[in-house]
Simulated scan of single mutants.
Amino acid sequence: MATIEGYETKAGRRYMVRYRKPDRTTTKKRGFKTKRDANLFLASVEVDKATGAFIDPALANKTIAELGPSWLERKQGLKPSAYRPLEIAWRVHVEPVWGKFPISKIVFTDVQAWVTNLSIGDEKAKPAKKPKSATTVIRAYGVLAAILDDAVKDRRLQANPARGVDLPRKSKKEHVFLSHEQVRDLADNSKYPALIRVLAYCGLRWGEVTGLRVQDVDMIRRRLNVNQNAVDVGGKIKVGTPKSHERRSVPFPEFLAPAIGEACKGKHLEDLVFPNEDGSYLRAISGGSGRGSWFLKAVQRAGVPRVTPHDLRHTAASFAVSAGANVKAVQRMLGHSSASMTLDVYAELFDDDLDGVAIALNNVVSQMDVPKTCPNKA
């Protein structure tokens, strides 16, 4: 049974509420300045117990530092390339700021201020804090919000105070598309010309092409079977399934057959098609800055626009579309999860299709006996 008791403090008389939780254990809350406030709190507790909305104050006192590690541990089932950014966001941006906060003390305005400060930086801080990219801010916010989402599901909080925050917008990076001549020049100036051409004409991701084994190449059907992905995560190569865990078969044009065949010549089925000189997985960049990169040197020698290996994937998409491939074919070649994703990424490549609609409509209407202008109404 609940009771309200008064007690004396240096600041004056205060009231304490003793009540039972749904599990029948007794707890208390102190510090009410008036008996009316104590009665209102007790009434709200009884309503929450009756409606199933009761939150145990002891559970709500858990800090972000206590809940974060277990949330992060549950994410270890992700691919290493997906897990590592989350771990960095937690370690660098979330835990240092929010670690000591009990989840019950986190409020919406504080979360919004944190997101804003990450976005704009703080030159007055010592050392000065530079603005973070939209991707970094959104990822850090996502980690904090996800931890609080779990707290809501565990009945530690009634609602997530982080939801509804205004986030920075990601600016869409313009794609760089090379011409056939530029791909030729890049390949001719490269240490690995066959690899450059495969990237530019087949659209494989870097980890997919460097993970290709001889047994993945079908010279008769001219197909590259993408069965694994070799990704550099924190300086270490992690080999796993392709992105989204979906294997696919990518056709290669006949003119690439001699170079691919030469790359496979004399190798065992398990050997890599495009290995490093020592037979290990090839890297595009040597060192964190990219200085000394064989790929960067090839770009500079060829005099082509500044591109990355991933940009050659965009070039492959542009070649496919200009050759008449529809969006579904491009989606399958690139390994996108849906055709709508392909359209979102490469909408500009399909502008000619819009022109084709207008031309087709014009051809139909021109064969009909209809007025070409709208008459003026009296």
Rank of each mutant, 00 (worst) to 15 (best):
L354W: 03
K33I: 12
R36K: 13
A320R: 01
D166V: 11
T116P: 01
R197L: 07
R163Y: 12
F101P: 03
P80V: 08
N189I: 04
D369N: 15
S280V: 04
L343M: 15
E123F: 07
S337G: 13
A53H: 14
K132P: 02
H336S: 10
H336E: 08
P102E: 14
R84M: 11
L157S: 08
K75N: 10
M333L: 14
I88H: 02
L157H: 09
R163H: 14
A360D: 12
N117H: 02
K33M: 08
L157C: 12
G240D: 03
R184F: 05
I4C: 04
V115A: 11
G290F: 06
L361D: 05
T34F: 06
L118E: 02
L204H: 02
A317M: 05
G261Q: 12
A317Y: 00
K238Y: 02
G235D: 09
D353F: 08
P305L: 09
A317K: 01
R74N: 14
Q331D: 01
N189Y: 06
I120R: 14
E174F: 04
A50T: 07
A325G: 06
Y192R: 09
T3H: 07
G31L: 08
D352K: 10
K238W: 02
S337Q: 11
L343I: 15
V239W: 11
R221N: 12
F252P: 02
A298Q: 04
W90E: 05
I260G: 00
V327Y: 01
L296P: 00
M341Q: 13
Y346G: 09
Y201H: 06
G266P: 02
D271F: 12
R30K: 13
M341W: 10
D369L: 09
A151E: 04
A316R: 02
V137I: 08
L167D: 07
R156N: 09
S293R: 05
N326A: 09
G6W: 01
K328V: 10
V176K: 04
R13M: 10
E73W: 05
K100A: 15
N326L: 07
A298Y: 01
F108I: 05
K100W: 09
Y7Q: 10
D185E: 10
L148H: 08
K236M: 11
S340I: 14
P161L: 07
A358I: 13
D149N: 15
A89L: 13
W114T: 03
P309M: 06
R20A: 12
Q112W: 02
S44I: 03
L78V: 07
A347N: 11
A325I: 06
G52R: 10
P168G: 11
T3S: 11
L186A: 08
K191E: 13
N61I: 05
G240C: 08
R24A: 15
R36E: 11
G142H: 03
I55D: 01
I88M: 08
T51K: 09
